[in-house]
Structures are given as structure tokens and as C-alpha cells.
Simulated scan of single mutants.
Amino acid sequence: MTEGWLWALFTVIAAAAQTARNAMQRELTATLGTAGATHVRFLFGFPFALIAVAAIAIVSGQKLPVPNAAFWPWVILGAASQILATGLMLAAMGERSFVVTIAYTKTEPIQVALFGLIFLGEHITPLLAAAILIATAGVMVMSFKPGASGTRDWKPAALGLASGAMFAFSAIGFRGAIRALDGQFFMVSSFTLAVGLALQAGALTLYLMWRERAILTAILQSWRPSMFAGFMGALASTFWFLAFALATAAAVRTLALVEVLFAQGVSLFVFGQKASARDVMGISLIVIGVVLLLWAT
């Protein structure tokens, strides 16, 4: 496989790993709360990110990148936005089903395309724009539930859409940080991930020590499932960052909508939530959008 198609492979692997991590975090929310379950992906993911950087350095013989002045604002934006995005996503999962929550957060590609154009100068071709709109329309079809009304129905929508916006800022921030570094794409992407996780784990640990120390104790007591969630989070993030090093944020996050398909599988086989005709229609639109995306790139 040529480097030109590697980003697509990396994205699909990342989406599958992220689905597993999201499912595990959803379960951890019941015992650790939103803040605790959010912290798990960063605290337990950081050691795996360090191992990845060390392995790449040993195997390739490359030196670690030297962060420059442009790197830090981007990586801080990415890290802070991802913390907020994850917390909002888990809060939304407490209000609605797993697959619907994931669908709400996946309104992200349109926002990524806009932010990428504004902040990174990454232009969108007409075919790529069509792919983004069709795939996002599929997500909206899956999200809309006829006959739903009331505050409780607006709350998960607001939380999910806000989460999608924060994930969009996170994607732009991390891609900007990767582009600011010099070096081979495996090293610069893995190094950026390790720095981002260090910032996130440190910030959330300090916050929990200040406000909710009992949660830190609960996290350590739940170390077995937390370790798995951290590993899957680090695995997903590693491949997201590799994809960001090779393709625009808009292309990566649009192809990432395959996560909705994976989430539908988890919803059906793990949580026992059946797919409706509307879900099938939405999935079909997502598939069409993904095919157009791959054709456009």
C-alpha cells in the first residue's frame, strides 16, 4: 500500500479502536463519573504513548523532534479541546443511547472542514465537500427521532453537538502541532500524541486533586478496566495522529464516520439496542459519503 492510501487505513483502525474505548468509557462513567471516565483515557493512555515513541526511536534510529514556538499553541489547543470533547460526549451518553450519542458527535466533519480552511489553509474540493455533506446527512438521519420532544431530548443533542465542535478544534490543533514539527511522520505524530497526553493527564490529575480526590482513588481501584480503556484510547489516538500527518483533518474526520457503523454494531451486539429503518438509511448515506471521499482523494 502506498503512503497516499495509508491515511485511510490508519483512520479505519483508529475508528475501530475508538469505538471499543468509547464503549468501555461508557461503562466506567457509572462508577467513576464523567470526570473520572474522561481522565482514564489520558492517564492510562500516556504510558502506552511513551512506549510507542521509544519503540519508534529505537527501531528507526531517529531523534526526538525539537518542539518550536509554533508547536505549543497548537498542541495545547488540541489537548484542551479533546478533554472538553470527551467529557461532553460521556455526559451525552448518560442521556441517550450509545449509537445516537456517537452520531451527534459526528457532526464534526463540517466544522473540521471550516476550521481547517480558516486556521490551516486546507482547501476543500467540490467532491470532498459533497462527501462531507452526504456522510453528515447520514449521521443526522440516524440522530433524528420522530415524535421526540421535551428538554431531555434537547439536552443530549446540545451536549453531542458541543462535543463534536470540541473534537473539531482538537483535530485542527493536533494537525497543526504535527505540521509544526520536522521529521518522519511516524515520529512526529507519535511525539505529538505523547506530549498531548502528558498535558491532558497532568491537567486532569491536578483538577481532580483539587476538586474530587475520591475519584482518583476510585480510578486506581478500577485499574483493570481503566488500563484497557487507556490502551484502546492510546491505540486509537496513535492511528488518528498518523492519519493527520498524511491527510487533511477534513478528509480524516469524514472517513472517521465509519465509527458510527462500528458503534451501531456495538449498540446491537453489546447493549442490545436494535437498528431501525431510519438507522439503515443513515448508514447507507454514510457509506455513500465515504466512497465519494475515497474517490475524491
Rank of each mutant, 00 (worst) to 15 (best):
A37F: 02
A80F: 09
W7I: 08
V260F: 09
P65V: 07
G183H: 02
W5L: 15
G36A: 10
I172T: 10
A37R: 02
S222D: 11
T101R: 03
A80Y: 01
Q200E: 10
A54P: 05
P65M: 02
L193T: 03
E3P: 07
V258P: 01
M281Q: 14
D279K: 05
A37W: 06
V252P: 08
T125F: 10
W223T: 09
V188H: 06
E27R: 13
I283P: 01
F169R: 04
I56G: 08
R213V: 09
S149P: 03
A263T: 05
G183S: 07
Q62W: 13
L197M: 13
G45K: 05
P109V: 04
W223S: 11
A23Q: 01
A16H: 00
F174P: 04
V195Q: 05
L161T: 04
G183Y: 02
T101E: 00
P225M: 01
S226L: 01
F174T: 15
I83C: 05
S163F: 00
G78H: 06
A168Y: 00
I13R: 07
G78E: 07
P67R: 08
F98R: 06
A194F: 02
L235H: 00
S222N: 15
L88S: 03
V260A: 11
L285Y: 06
M209F: 14
F244W: 12
F119R: 10
A250M: 10
K155S: 03
A177Q: 09
W74H: 14
R213A: 13
M89G: 04
A131N: 01
E3F: 06
F244A: 11
P225Q: 07
I172K: 09
A218C: 10
